[in-house]
Nucleic acid binder design. Sequence first.
DNA 1: AAAGATAATTGAATAATATTCAACCAAATA
DNA 2: TATTTGGTTGAATATTATTCAATTATCTTT
Lengths: 149, 149
Amino acid sequence: MKDITSKLIDLFKQGYCTPQISRIAKKLKEPSTTIHYNIKKLERDGLVRSYKAVFDHKKIDEGYCVYVLISLSPDEYGNPEKVAKELAKHVQIESVDICTGDCEIILKVRVKDQNEYYQLVKTVISRKGIIKIKSLTSLKQIKSECITL
Amino acid sequence: MKDITSKLIDLFKQGYCTPQISRIAKKLKEPSTTIHYNIKKLERDGLVRSYKAVFDHKKIDEGYCVYVLISLSPDEYGNPEKVAKELAKHVQIESVDICTGDCEIILKVRVKDQNEYYQLVKTVISRKGIIKIKSLTSLKQIKSECITL
DNA sequence: AAAGATAATTGAATAATATTCAACCAAATA
DNA sequence: TATTTGGTTGAATATTATTCAATTATCTTT
């Protein structure tokens, strides 16, 4: 048996989806050519970056979700983007924001369990320049990516 | 002129997209029927919740992004889901998580600007049961919904 | 306000794609 | 090892996206 499932999940995280023009046309009661034209415009103008799947994260071994508030040391403080871009490379890190307020960087992390999170903190999040990490663990996701669960 | 753009954006937040089977088939070098079968299985088993668009939020009047840490008063403390579900109803609130640690609920909010955020805090986030709100404003999004910007 | 240019809407024709089906093969189970 | 269940696949069909050309609306310039 080929393990196509995990390959599909990886592709769907990036994109590999497309709008359902005829369904939208019926919904909005407009000709499908009009819908087609308007969608292409959205894409051309860059309002839409990608079309992708939204998962039930518990079912794809990403049930452990943590918001990570990161404080930088004074020497890295002026250039948070360097650290942020480095962190963004990791697939377990869903989002990376540079912030104002109590911390300089906020991550949203999805991993399988607490142990995998611990490994991630040890190997990628803890690094030179980061002086403080506060983990806010999600006990229950009520809404995610605009979709109420 | 019909304002189809905003209707499309609304639909794409919920879904109204679908996988590109033939493109995936070429990518993975498998017959499209095999890909079709495996995708239907993913959907049937509930690993995939929806297919949707990812936006350039700055271009759709959602350029102001805030993480909101909410503390509940002792009387609501034992039942955070009630408050969480109420908050989840609002389209500007992208995600709602019930948390452990410094706060009970974390929101990710997307609005046009600071003023619209102020309105949201006044009218929906501030309510009975919420005793403390800490706003962490995103200055720059490096990665969002798994997509590096 | 008129003329010209550009952008948006649309139906008909075509191209591309998803879906169904039946046959076959692999894996698990008893 | 016989039997059932789940996965793979090619050929046929159904559905859907895309292209194109014509039409209409909107914006720009004078």
